[in-house]
Amino acid sequence: MSEQAPPPEEEVVVESARLRLAPLLAGLAETFADATFEESVAGQQVARVESARLVEFVQACRDAGFEMFIDLTAVDYYRRRPGPRYDVVVGLLSLEHNLRLRVLVEVDGDVPTAPSITGVYPGANFYEREVYDLFGIEFTGHPDLTRIMIQDDWEGHPLRKDTAVGSVPIQFRNTNKVL
């Protein structure tokens, strides 16, 4: 890799999506016709794919040059939007092209389920466990889907919007002790 990071490459217009896409993403947009590409605040590239094709899409991203796995998390849009309740958010980074891609997958249901991408990026392991722990989203194909942050006997999933913050009144003990 060169001393300075390369400047962003020329952007091309994909007619079908009517969006200015980096060349890296144009190929992906052709392969995955049902994926929608959009640009979020500050020009960040966002792709929405169907849950069933997530692993395939992420594999294609990795082959296309997004070599680094950055992040995986979820958002609970409880009563905030029609349609599916959760978004699973995958963050990818291409060092060579200096480009970020955020892959969004909508999941829903009593037991929301998404495919695990640990087969593509092993680093997603702890992140998926965290999302499972805090949101209750199950990742099919994950090797070791157990709670990671809170203790095993905790019931519920704290970051869901219908779970309360869980604050309790504070009590000081031995406050009458005067030295």
Partner: peptide, 21 residues
């Protein structure tokens, strides 16, 4: 790359990647 390790451990492997640049 596979585990998302950045910062000094990544640069110690010879990859020139610093978000400040």
């Amino acid at each position: 790359f596979a585990y998302g390790i950045t910062g000094p451990p990544l640069r110690a492997t010879g990859i020139n990647w610093d978000l400040r640049k």
